[in-house]
Nucleic acid binder design. Sequence first.
DNA 1: CTAGGGTTAG
Length: 588
Amino acid sequence: MSIIRRSSSSSSSYLPSSPIKFLNHRHHHQTSSPSFLSIETLFKKCKTLRNLQQIHARIIQKGLEQDNFLISQFVCLCNSFSNITYAFSVFNRVSQPNLCLWNSIIKGHCEKSSLSNTISIFNRMKQSDMVPDTYTFPPLIKSCSKGLALREGKILHGLVVRYGVEADIFVRTSLIDLYGKCGEIKFARMLFEEMSERNEYSWTAMIVGYANFGDLGSARKLFDEIPCRNIASWNAMIDGYVKFRDFRSARELFEQMPKKNVVAYTSLIVGYAEVGDMATARFLFDQMPDRDIVVWSALISGYVQNGRPHEAVKIFFMMLGENIKPDEFIMVGLMSACSQVRNLELAKWIDSYLTRISIDIRRVHVAAALIHMNAECGNMERATSLFEGMPKKDLISYCSMIHGLSIHGAGAQAVCLFDRMVAEGVTPDDVAFTVILAACSHSGLVEEGHRYFNSMKNDYSIVPSPDHFACMIHLLGRAGKLQEACELIKSMPEEPHAGAWGALLGACKLHSNVKLGEIVALKLFEIEPQNPGNYVSLSNIYAAIDRWYDVSEVRRRMKEKQLRKLPGCSWIDDGFFPFEQNQEHTNL
DNA sequence: CTAGGGTTAG
C-alpha cells in the first residue's frame, strides 16, 4: 500500500491528465472531475509495450525504480509481452530485489530464455541469500520439462526437498509433469500417489505422462477417475490417442466433449494430416466455430507435408482474408509450399512480406525456409546473399543451396559448394548425397557422380538407398551409358523402385533405345500400373522412330486402363492467388 | 503491507 497511500497525500503521485497518451483520451471529457491515476491503475490499463515504456518513464520520474512491488508488476507485464530483455535490464537496476521480484524475473526467463541462462539467474538469487519458496520452483521445473532436461530437473527436485517445499501442490504438479514428459513414469506416479490433495492440474499432468509414454490404458483409467475434469484433461487424453494413432477413441472422446475447443480440434487435425488424411483434417477444420493461428498453421503444414502446396497457399490467403496476422510457423509453412510450386513471383512477395509483418528472418528455421524457397524458385542471387550472411551454415541450408544450383543447371557450382561444405567440416548425410548426385545427373557430370557415389559408401559408410541408385542410373542413362546403368540397376540390393526404372526409361527415350525401352516399360507397367507417364514415355519412344502403329497400340492400352495424362493444375485462376505464375526462372 | 507459481494443440 505504501506507494499508493504515500502517493495520495502528495499531488505529484497522481497522474493529472498525464503525458501518458493512452490514457488521455479516456479522461478528456471528464472535465468535472479531473482524472488522477496511480501507477497501479496504469498497470491495469497497460495494453502495449509502448504503454509499458510510458509507465516505466513515470516510475523513473518519481524515483520509484527501487520499489519491489512496482518493479514486480512491471516485470510480469514485460513477461506477458515476451520482452525479457527489457524486464531484465530494469530488474538489474534494483539493488535489493525481494523474493517476489526474483520469482518474477525467473519466471520470465523460463519462458523465453535458455535453461542455462535461467539457472544462472536462479544461482545468483541463491548467492544473494535469498531463500527460494514454492513460487520459485514450478517455472524452473517447467522449463526443464520443456527441454526434457531430466538431469537438471533432478537437481532441482533435490533442492525442492532441501528447501522443504515438496508438499506444495504447484511444485509437485510441475515435478509430475517433468518426470512424465521424460518417461520416468514410475517416479511421476509415486509423486502423484503421495499427494495429500490433487486438483485438475495434477491429474492432467499425470495423464499426459501416461499418454506420452504410450500407456493409454492407464491414462484413460485416470481420466475416467478424475473428480475434477478440466478442458485440458480432455485435450490431453484426446491428444494421447491421436499421438498413438487411435483415431477411433480420439474421435469418440472428442464427440463426448461438453465444449469442444481449438486445442482438441488442432490435435485431431495435426494427427489426420500426419497420416495423410487431409480430407478429414479439412472436414474438422471447416466445422470449427472459431479458429486460431495454431490451427491455421496446422492445416497449412498438413497440406505441405502431403504434397498439396496449392491448397496450402489457398488456405494462407483465406487466413489473410479473415484478418489474422501470420506468425513464424505460418510463414515457414507457406515458404515450403512456395518451394514446392516454385513460383518466383510468390517467393518475391513472401520475401518482402516477411519484413512488412516484421518476422525475424535470422531465426534458424525461418532463414532455412527462406533460403530454400529462393533457391527452389530460382532466385539464386537472393538465396546466396542470405546464405552467405548466415553466421553458422548448417547442413540443411547447404543442401538447399546445392539443390537450388542443381535444379537451375549449375551443376559445377553445386559440386564446388558441396566440396566447400565438406571442407568446412559439415558432415553430409544420405539426403545431402541424394542432392549432389541429382545435381551431377542433371548436369551430366558423370565423373563427379561416381566420385560422390563412392565417397558416400567409403568415407561416410552410407548404404546407398534406392534414391541414390536412381540418381546414378539417371546420370549414366542420360550420358548414354545404358549398359552401365543396366548393370547398376541389377546390382541393387533391394528391389528397384519406380524411380530407378523410370530414370532408365527416360534414358531409353533420350537415346531411342527401343529394345531396352520396351523391357523397362513392361517392368514399370507392373510396378505402377496407375501411372500414365510410363505409357506416354513408351509411346514417345515409338513416335521418335515413326512406329506409329505401336504408338496407337500403347495409347489404346492406356485408354483401356482408363488412364489419362494428368491435367495441369489451375489453382492460379480461381481467385485465391494474386500473382502470375512464372514458368521460366533464369536468374542464374 | 500488497504481488509471484503448475496441466492441453502448430
